[in-house]
């Protein structure tokens, strides 16, 4: 019976316009919409549930108490997570070093066999949470993982390299893996199932110890990159734009 813990991080939604605050050195998060770190942590949850279905065990999903956390946790429950935990602290200004230390103190108590999280997030200014968490727990770490199996008391993981090359790594238990992609696309759950999960499952709340922010660089200023160039925009109706594109294709010698 494998005891699997998944750390689900929340990040500001990049679809919203990003603004820099009055200090000039941080994002203005007053109106940020916090969503799950979707390209990666969604996959980490999926990988955890796939492993449970295949090898047995329990999946605990743990998330920082930011707006949107309940939604992330109940969605995970609807997918098959067994235990939901929300960690209370002021995480909106926390860095990954602080998150890793705070979560390791709590996760240690669960005595997990396996901890999964997304391999990276777009706001990782001081390193990614997975390896920082692994080292706080004194456990081995492998990132860019796209497959996990348990065999003969060891993990066999698939680690991705550029160009589609994969390394199969053997890792002792317990371990922390940074998930690049689950073995299958994250399953879809209907809103009705999430609503049902809200009624049948509950979220445990735990307090984080004081956040220790050391290990991150100080930011003096943030700015939006000035593009060296910007695309020449083709305007008009779909028909007009299509005609312009076809003319361009001809000019470039592909038509």
């Amino acid at each position: 019976m494998m005891n699997i813990v998944v750390l689900a991080k929340l990040v500001p939604d990049l679809v919203e316009e990003l603004t820099i605050d009055a200090s000039g050195a941080a994002l203005d998060l007053t109106f940020a919409r916090w969503i799950i770190n979707e390209l990666f942590d969604d996959h980490a949850i999926e990988q955890g549930i796939l492993l449970k279905e295949r090898s047995g065990g329990t999946v605990t999903v743990i998330a920082p108490d930011l707006e949107g956390a309940d939604d992330v946790l109940f969605t995970a429950a609807a997918k098959g997570a067994d235990r939901l935990i929300k960690v209370r602290s002021d995480f909106s200004a926390a860095n990954n070093h602080a998150v890793a230390r705070a979560f390791s103190a709590i996760i240690k108590g669960f005595q997990p066999d396996l901890i999964l999280t997304g391999v990276q997030a777009h706001n990782d200014l001081d390193g990614s949470a997975g390896p920082l968490l692994a080292e706080s727990l004194g456990l081995p770490y492998v990132g860019y993982v796209s497959g996990v199996a348990l065999a003969d008391g060891k993990f066999m993981v698939k680690k991705e390299y550029p160009g589609g090359l994969i390394a199969e790594m053997e890792v002792t238990l317990p371990a922390v893996f940074g998930i690049q992609a689950a073995e299958q696309p994250p399953r879809y759950v209907a809103v009705s199932k999430v609503r049902q999960a809200m009624k049948t499952s509950s979220i445990e709340e735990m307090d984080a110890s004081d956040l220790d922010l050391s290990g991150a660089p100080e930011i003096e200023r943030m700015f939006q990159p000035e593009a060296a160039a910007h695309a020449e925009m083709l305007e008009g109706t779909p028909e007009e734009v299509s005609a312009k594109l076809v003319a361009l294709f001809k000019e470039l010698g592909v038509l």
């Binding site: 391999v119 001081d126 920082l132 080292e135 770490y141 990132g143 860019y144 940074g178 290990g215 660089p217």
Partner: peptide, 23 residues
């Protein structure tokens, strides 16, 4: 900031107590 470096840098930051600048 790759499949190699990212597996090492953050761990060393925590292990050695040294600051890390990412990306």
């Amino acid at each position: 900031n790759t499949s190699i470096g990212a597996d090492v840098a953050s761990v060393l930051s925590m292990r050695l107590g040294l600051p890390l600048v990412n990306s």
